[in-house]
Amino acid sequence: MSDTRLDVRDIPPAERHPKIHSAFAELESGDSLTLINDHEPKPLFYEMKAEVEAFDADGYTVEHRGPAEYIAIFPKN
């Protein structure tokens, strides 16, 4: 299992989801994508849950570390 980190805070909002989906698609089964974001990625969680079969929604976690820092882990089945 490996962990890929992606900090999207400096990426324009319209470009974030495509970049995240691309990074997630490159993962192997059992790997996870650690996302660093400036807001809680709740809409992305629901999008991934509905559209990405390999997303392990039960293993998803998110931690609020500061006013503009959320760390979310998106595991891949």
Rank of each mutant, 00 (worst) to 15 (best):
G59N: 05
P41E: 03
L44H: 05
L44S: 04
K19N: 08
N37G: 09
E47F: 07
A50K: 11
H39E: 08
P13S: 03
D10N: 14
A72G: 15
I73W: 02
E51A: 02
D56Q: 02
H64S: 14
Y70P: 05
R65P: 00
L27Q: 03
I71W: 09
A14V: 08
K42W: 07
P67F: 06
V8D: 03
H21A: 08
I71N: 02
I11T: 14
D7P: 06
D31A: 13
S2Y: 07
G59F: 07
L35I: 07
S32K: 15
K19Y: 01
E63T: 15
A25R: 13
L35F: 06
D7L: 11
A50T: 09
R5Q: 13
P41D: 00
D10W: 03
R16P: 04
N77V: 10
E40L: 06
P13W: 02
F74W: 11
S32R: 15
D3H: 04
E69M: 14
S22L: 08
N37R: 09
T4K: 14
E63M: 11
R9H: 09
S29C: 05
E69Q: 15
P41W: 00
H17M: 14
P75N: 12
S22V: 01
G66I: 08
A57E: 10
P13E: 04
P43C: 06
L27F: 08
E40Y: 01
P12Y: 12
H17C: 06
F45K: 13
D7C: 10
R16T: 05
N37T: 08
R16I: 05
P12Q: 07
V8A: 01
L44A: 04
R9G: 09
L33V: 05
R5A: 11
G30E: 13
M48H: 01
A54H: 07
D10R: 12
D31T: 06
E40K: 08
M1A: 11
H64K: 13
I71T: 11
T34H: 02
R5I: 13
D10V: 05
D7Y: 11
D3S: 09
A25C: 01
R16Y: 03
F74S: 00
R9C: 06
E28N: 03
D31Q: 15
P18I: 04
Y60N: 13
G66F: 05
D58Q: 08
A57W: 10
S32A: 13
R9V: 03
T61G: 09
G59D: 08
P75F: 10
F55V: 00
D38R: 03
D10E: 15
K42D: 14
D3E: 12
G59T: 03
F45A: 10
P18E: 07
